[in-house]
Computed example of a mutant assay.
Amino acid sequence: MAMAMIEAQPAAAQNAVEDLITEKKVFTLQSYTTQGGRTLKDVKVGWESYGTLNADKSNAVLICHFFSGNSHAAGKYDAKDAAPGYWDAIIGPGKAIDTNKYFVLSSDTLVNLNTGDPKTTTTGPASVNPDTGKPYALDFPVVTVGDFVNVQKALVESLGIKRLALVAGPSMGSLQTFEWAASHPEMVAKAMPVIGAGEADAQLIAWLDVWAAPILVDPNWNKGDYYGRTPPNAGLAKALAVVTLQANHQDWANATFGRRPAKAEEDPAKALSNRFQIQSILDNAGEARAKVSDANHFLYLVKANQLFATGGTSLADAATKIKAPVLLITQPKDLVFTADAVEKTAETLRKGGVSVTQAYLQGARGHLDGVISMKQAEGAIRAFLEK
């Protein structure tokens, strides 16, 4: 569901002659009515693209981002950037999603987490309400994955695109992919959800509550009213640490940290404040990420993911509406969308008449392999797109 990362993502494909360079743009809707019936004014989201839209606008691919991500799916904004977008291994000239052939676009969602990142544009609780001149805070309406998709649809249609050759994305991006395929079947030729399932089950709903809990008990959260005051970054940092741990796997944790203390001279057995290395690393990563994130946005993303069922009802109902063939790419060690949930999704889709091809990632990172290990799936993606 989320990918809060401890280490830098892998550099762009080593064989690339030069980096794919892109620029961030802003899409604006004068008004947008949420699925819950609330109308928002001046809705803005960031977006970017790679490749060229062809004359009949039939070569567009939409990439949907994960919980803690943004639109930066591939390439760099500047050749000097430290790392490319998260799926650069499979998006670019000559890669599995070939930008010599496809026009690839991606946008920031509503309530995007990364409010402190100058390369992210979003509308959410931290945004100023045009009617009051103050941040919405918790007056911002609950939004759903369906709302994320509807704003993307408006962006796509503003470019004159009537049908997408492919919709794809990891984790929360997979939820948006399922939603696109069910709610707008006439617009989706093929769908590639990665490390995700077709609805949030009870276990995932409860885990998402665990993610949110540290924010809610931080006194600085103040029931969401903290703009212009001290933000609840202690709670947000711990929430992000929880997300990072679940997005990984014990194979990674044990091999990377084992039982080593955070400081060699501070034995964890000697004092309550002495810590293990994995505790220190997770907390440091959470604290760094919290500085450019917003706690209310985190909570709204949690709610959107808890509410998710493909098509807004149930996967079983939605499966009968999906027309696009599906390439479902997952990691059997995933601790967020477990193997059981994934197989239930595949079975339900097939019962609904959907053509489903499955591919599996290997590695020690669990859920996170759906971001950093996608090169493994290159052959499956190429074959799927060529069908």
Rank of each mutant, 00 (worst) to 15 (best):
V142G: 00
L164C: 08
A79P: 09
G69M: 00
G146K: 13
N150A: 13
T109H: 04
V128Q: 14
I91V: 09
V128S: 12
T109L: 07
T120A: 11
G75Y: 01
G116F: 10
Q152G: 05
L164I: 09
S58R: 09
D81I: 01
P93W: 04
G69E: 00
A74H: 00
V156F: 15
Y136N: 14
V142R: 15
T144R: 11
Y77P: 08
D108V: 02
K95T: 03
T144F: 09
S183Q: 11
G92H: 00
P130K: 13
T121I: 12
L113N: 03
K101N: 06
A79S: 14
G160W: 05
A79I: 13
T115E: 15
F67P: 00
P118Y: 14
G169D: 06
K119C: 07
L159V: 06
Y136W: 15
I161L: 15
F66W: 09
V142S: 11
L62F: 15
W180T: 02
W87Y: 02
S68I: 02
V156E: 13
T121Y: 10
T121N: 09
T144L: 11
F66I: 03
G133N: 08
V61H: 11
C64E: 06
L110T: 01
P93C: 06
G169S: 02
K95W: 05
N150V: 03
K80D: 13
W180V: 01
N112R: 05
G146H: 09
W87N: 00
V151D: 10
G124E: 07
G160F: 03
H72E: 06
R163G: 06
A154E: 15
V151Q: 13
F66A: 03
V167A: 10
L159I: 05
E157W: 15
T122D: 10
N112A: 12
I63S: 08
F66L: 03
S106N: 04
